[in-house]
């Protein structure tokens, strides 16, 4: 299998072979995934929520970093495609015995794996694995370090498209800890590729990457200004370790300036939607009345996440 050295996600026909990052993926492939996911939403609403596409295939969930929600939605997606799913929480198995990541992967490949879903605390780990697996094995990045979380970015795009239909006239705000967020990076790349004309990032200086404006986004430090007239508000999770760390005075302080409350949300358009990748810190980045309010699409995001992962897996396994 020849993979494009400049973009090792694509095969020689320009088709998706691995999903490692949304950066550098052509719009055509993003639209293909979003369109396919739409058809899978129908499948998940039926009596029998399964299709036979991946029958006989083995999908290995390799989670080098704990995650319940992402692992579960990948597992549900693979099972709805009729694949066999093997879940491995690696931090509690061979890694503690000193086995390297590539040795783990080589051993699992020898068990006839067809696909690896990889979550790792180190940026680039899924790329490393993708470079070393046999040519007929597909790798999906389920979140690596601060780098990328492509299926989360895709399910966010699916959710926005579901409610707003079209990206070409949207004003979107991404709020919170942009610096440490692989989700934010994936969102910015996807929104840009899909033609969103105005992306704003909102957060304290200490939680914004330097030169973030080079990604083509507008930077705001004052949330009330940043939310003015936006169509979509994408909240990010504030990681626990940041709440105690040197970058922020306190969680309460963060809530005061950057927590999404009803009165701040009122500055956005009246029909603006609110997204959050979960799990939420209620009372830190988002108020409960907003999280459970009429503009929240946080639970539909979870449902759409299954359809997106079904779409990605079935497109990869077919290429």
């Amino acid at each position: 299998m020849w993979l494009d050295p400049a973009n090792p996600q694509l095969n020689k026909n320009g088709e998706l072979h691995h999903l490692l990052s949304l950066e550098g993926l052509p719009a055509e492939i993003l639209w293909q995934i979003l369109d396919t996911a739409k058809s899978f939403v129908g499948v998940t609403q039926r009596e029998v929520k399964k299709v036979p596409l991946l029958r006989g295939k083995a999908v290995f969930n390799l989670f080098f970093e704990p995650s319940t929600r992402t692992r579960t939605t990948f597992e549900i997606a693979a099972k709805r495609l009729s694949a066999d799913v093997i879940n491995l929480a690696i931090n509690v198995s061979s890694q503690t015995k000193g086995e390297s990541v590539l040795d783990t992967v080589a051993n699992l490949s020898a068990m006839q794996a067809d696909m690896f879903v990889v979550r790792h605390a180190a940026s680039g780990a899924p790329h490393l694995i993708a470079r070393h697996v046999a040519p007929d094995i597909h790798v999906i990045n389920a979140g690596d370090g601060r780098h990328s979380h492509p299926t989360q970015g895709l399910l966010d795009m699916f959710t926005i498209r579901h409610y707003k239909k079209d990206f070409s006239s949207l004003r979107v705000a991404i709020v919170g800890d942009i610096l440490h967020s692989r989700v934010a990076r994936s969102q910015i790349h996807a929104l840009t590729t899909l033609g969103c004309p105005e992306i704003r990032v909102i957060g304290p200086k200490t939680l914004l990457p330097s030169h973030v404006e080079n990604l083509g986004v507008h930077v705001h430090h004052e949330m009330r200004k940043g939310l003015k007239d936006v169509d979509v508000v994408m909240m990010l999770r504030l990681q626990n370790e940041r709440m105690q760390g040197p970058l922020l005075p306190s969680a309460q302080e963060f809530y005061k300036y950057y927590g999404l409350t009803e009165d701040k949300l009122a500055l956005a358009k009246p029909d603006a939607i609110v997204l959050h990748p979960g799990p939420m810190n209620r009372g830190v980045e988002i108020d409960s009345s907003v999280a459970d309010g009429r503009q929240s699409v946080i639970l539909p995001q979870v449902t759409f996440g299954i359809a997106i992962r079904m779409a990605v897996m079935s497109i990869l396994a077919g290429n």
Partner: peptide, 8 residues
């Protein structure tokens, strides 16, 4: 592989 233009 999967058809490019899957309808619902």
């Amino acid at each position: 592989g999967l058809h490019r233009d899957v309808k619902t």
